[in-house]
C-alpha cells in the first residue's frame, strides 16, 4: 500500500469559492502558479453568480494559463460555502484537495509547506493555523483579536479538537477524507470549518498543522456582528451535542 502510494504522482485540486472577487482572482491565480510551479495541480473556481464580472476575468485567466489548469464551475447564485466545496469536489481530478479563500487572506506561498508536511507525515489533513509560532495575523484590531481568542478558548474548552485554529479555512485534504467528512457537515459560515475539523478529529483522521499568516482583506470588506456571534455559539452547542 505504502509503496504503491509513493509511486503515484500526487495531483492537487485547489478549490477557490468566489463571490465578487474580480480584483483578487487574478492575483491569487498568479501567486498559485508562481509558488506551485513544479506540482501537478488544477484550480477549480466555484463562482456564485458574481455580478462584478469575476467570471469574465476567470475566462481571461484561462487564456493565459490554460483551460485544463483553471476550471470555472459557476453556480447561479450564492448557495453557501459547504455546497461550494461539494460542487468543486465533483469536478476535482486530483487525489488531494486544497481549500482556500480568494481574497488573498490565504497566501499561496504556504501551499508548498502544506504539501511537504503531508508528504512527510502521511497526514489525511493539513490545516493552516494562525495561533502558533510562525503564524500570525495582520490588520486585526483589539476587538477582533479578543473575539477570535475568546471564541477559540471556548471551542477548545468544550470540544477538545486537537488543533489550535478551529475556524481557519486554509486546508489540504485527502480527497476521500474530504468526501467522507463533508457528507455529514451541516453548519454554515466559519462554524462549518469548525465542524469539519472536529468531525475529522472524532473520526480519527490524521491531522497536521502548518503555520500561516492571515493578512486581512486587501480589497472588499468583511463584517462581524452580533448575529455572527450568536450563530457561532449555536454552532458550538450543536457540535457539543452531536460529536
Amino acid at each position: 500500500m505504502d509503496g504503491r502510494h509513493q509511486k503515484q504522482k500526487n495531483k492537487y485540486s485547489i478549490i477557490v469559492p468566489t463571490y465578487n472577487e474580480r480584483l483578487n482572482i487574478g492575483l491569487i491565480v498568479y501567486l498559485i502558479f508562481k509558488h506551485l510551479g513544479d506540482a501537478d495541480f488544477e484550480i477549480i473556481i466555484v463562482d456564485d453568480g458574481s455580478p462584478d464580472g469575476t467570471q469574465d476575468v476567470v475566462k481571461q485567466l484561462q487564456q493565459v494559463y490554460g483551460e485544463d489548469r483553471i476550471l470555472l464551475r459557476a453556480r447561479p447564485r450564492k448557495l453557501g460555502l459547504g455546497t461550494a466545496y461539494i460542487h468543486g469536489m465533483k469536478h476535482a481530478s486530483g487525489n488531494f484537495v486544497v481549500i482556500m479563500d480568494a481574497d488573498l487572506s490565504h497566501h499561496p506561498k504556504y501551499l508548498p509547506n502544506f504539501i511537504r508536511k503531508q508528504s512527510e507525515t502521511g497526514a489525511d489533513i493539513v490545516t493552516g493555523t494562525r495561533y502558533v509560532k510562525g503564524g500570525g495575523v495582520h490588520g486585526w484590531n483589539l476587538m477582533r483579536k479578543l473575539t477570535s481568542r475568546g471564541a477559540n478558548v471556548l471551542a477548545q474548552t468544550l470540544l477538545w479538537p486537537g488543533v489550535s485554529d478551529l475556524t481557519g479555512s486554509f486546508r489540504l485534504y485527502r480527497k476521500s477524507v474530504l468526501e467522507d467528512i463533508i457528507s455529514c457537515c451541516v453548519s454554515k459560515g466559519y462554524v462549518f470549518q469548525m465542524e469539519m475539523i472536529v468531525r475529522a478529529s472524532r473520526k480519527g483522521y490524521h491531522i497536521e498543522e502548518v503555520p500561516i499568516t492571515f493578512v486581512d482583506r486587501v480589497f472588499g470588506s468583511s463584517k462581524l456582528g452580533g448575529s455572527e456571534i450568536v450563530e457561532y455559539l449555536k454552532g458550538l452547542a450543536y457540535l457539543l451535542v452531536t460529536t
Binding site: 498568479y30 481571461q60 493565459v64 488573498l104 497566501h107 502558533v132 495575523v137 495582520h138
Partner: peptide, 27 residues
C-alpha cells in the same frame, strides 16, 4: 502572534502579479 511585515510582502506580490497579468491582457 502578529505579522505586519507580511502585509508589506503581500503588497509587493500584488504589484508583481498585476504587472504580469496586464502584460498578458488580463483585466
Amino acid at each position: 502572534p502578529t505579522c505586519p511585515q507580511e502585509a508589506l510582502l503581500l503588497q509587493k506580490d500584488i504589484v508583481e502579479a498585476k504587472e504580469y497579468l496586464q502584460q498578458k491582457g488580463v483585466d
